[in-house]
Design a binder for these strands. Structure first.
Length: 423
RNA sequence: GGAGAGAUGGCAGAGUGGUCGAAUGCGGCGGUCUUGAAAACCGUUGAUCUUAACGGGUCCGGGGGUUCGAAUCCCUCUCUCUCCGCCA
């Protein structure tokens, strides 16, 4: 959520920035500012009315003590009239503020200066590439065929147990999952991130805090008996640790990492995009989350991008880093870097990480604040990134490391897998 | 699942209708003393809306009600704890 203060003081700035996200905000911003003005006027009126009531109530107390019945009764009638008036103002005010909030949540976050203009994925800017794309020759297989050949991932069995998009990992395939999770977590904790293991079901308030609710409820699995949601990403429970929190100035930086399974309904997906591991309903992911002071959040973002890059580098997968254009960014983000690895058998790029700075947009919803050096309460900045999401990493590993009828495990993973080849 | 108890400031914990945003203790911050620290002592210490400011309003788990007046009484929801049952 954008702050009212920014909208009030700098409406033209907000409108021009949202244009970068191809969002025409003028009408909404103008309505919001009118409602905000009305809100303040009503507030003032109500406060004055309540203040009078309080004074008179105290007066009555005094009269009662002195036994002045009649005087007390006279004031009582006055208060009754005031009460009716304040109820009226309150109703008006509530209606006004509901409308205001409904408009406020319609505005996406404003992109920061570095965000390139553009409408779709083609307009994203490649900021860096690394590692070589391997030559696989004629007999290369896509990962879903490799998975079958070595009997390490069983998609059909998953369909039997649950449905499409819920694969069963077997033998070395299962071991590889566990190895990757541990490798990522160790890598993150070595960089100073604190490991947490959060619940993978969250309540409604948490869903609202990070922006999944109220709009995107169709994306989450919902346990209706208890009104809990299965997490679509560890970002949700981990960021919500800081919901309604005021951090002390000396509690920064906050660096957390968590592994969770992630559950996404992905309604409406089809075709080659969902083949094999490319898009699943349940998958494993290790996430990093940071809470920073505003003046430090962009340095933190650079650090996170460099951190994720070093993981991908270590895995030896050909990669590129994209700076997303305004049109391709998420609703809540101020800037996003996507990491893609090249899948040599599918001959396409697969997204494996997304690193974003949300500035104060999430914090405003979460009421996540901190005390600055002057002791004033300010909104903090939140950031998060995948480090990494497993399925497409596995897809790329299987495809890019296939050689002579077997799959080689990258050096860095061998201490975790306990084997050098899948064959 | 059954029975009972409870929810108050960072924490502990008083407060059962009138000036209570709330005693007290701990913790935090500032100071005195000290070469420094500890101890002791003194002071200070919630959030939020509104106002140029003075000031004013709201918040004692959430929502509703009674009353001139509610942390305190009533209704309702949620959550937590204890005991029993079940159990990885």
């Amino acid at each position: 959520m954008l702050t009212l203060k920014l909208l009030r003081e700098n409406p033209e700035f907000v409108i021009s920035k949202l244009a970068v996200k191809n969002f025409d905000a003028r009408e909404i911003v103008e309505k919001i500012n009118a409602l905000d003005q009305n809100r303040r006027a009503l507030q003032l009126e109500l406060d004055t009315c309540l203040s009078e009531q309080k004074k008179k109530a105290a007066q009555i107390g005094g009269f009662m003590k002195e036994g002045k019945r009649e005087e007390a009764d006279a004031v009582k009638t006055e208060v009754t009239a005031l009460k009716a008036r304040s109820a009226e103002i309150e109703a008006k005010s509530e209606e006004n503020n509901t409308e205001l909030n409904n408009l406020l949540v319609l505005l996406p976050n404003i992109p920061c200066d570095q965000v390139p203009e553009g409408k779709c994925a083609e307009d994203n800017v490649v900021v860096k590439t690394g590692n070589e794309i391997p030559e696989l020759g004629e007999n290369k297989l896509p990962h879903w065929e490799l998975a079958k050949k070595f009997d390490i991932i069983d998609f059909d069995l998953g369909v039997k147990l649950t449905g499409a998009g819920f694969p069963v990992y077997k033998g070395k395939g299962a071991r590889l999952q566990r190895a990757l999770i541990n490798f990522f977590l160790d890598y993150n904790t070595n960089a100073g991130y604190q490991e947490v293991e959060p619940p993978i079901m969250v309540n409604e308030a948490s869903g609202f805090g990070t922006g999944q609710l109220p709009d995107k409820e169709g994306q989450m699995y919902h346990a209706t008996a208890d009104n809990f949601y299965l997490v679509p990403t560890a970002e949700v429970p981990v960021t919500n640790i800081f919901r309604d929190v005021i951090l002390a100035n000396n509690e920064f930086p906050v660096k957390m990492t968590a592994y969770t399974p992630c559950f996404r309904r992905e309604a409406g997906s089809y075709g080659k995009d969902v083949r094999g591991l490319n898009r699943l309903h349940q998958f494993d992911k290790v996430e990093i989350v940071r809470v920073e002071k505003p003046e430090e959040s962009y340095a933190a973002l650079d650090e996170m991008v460099a951190h994720v890059e070093s993981i991908v580098k270590a895995l030896g997968l050909p990669y590129r880093i994209l700076r997303l254009c305004g049109g391709d960014m998420s609703f809540t983000s101020a800037i996003t870097y996507d990491f893609e690895v090249y899948s040599a058998a599918q001959e396409r790029w697969l997204e494996i990480s997304s690193v974003s700075n949300f500035e104060s947009y999430q914090a405003n919803r979460l009421k996540l604040r901190y005390k600055d050096a002057d002791g004033k309460t300010q909104l903090a900045h939140t950031l998060n990134g995948s480090s990494l999401a497993l399925p497409r990493v596995v897809a790329a590993l299987l495809e890019n490391y296939q050689k002579d009828g077997k799959i080689e495990i990258p050096e860095v993973l061998r201490p975790y897998t306990g084997f050098d080849y899948i064959d």
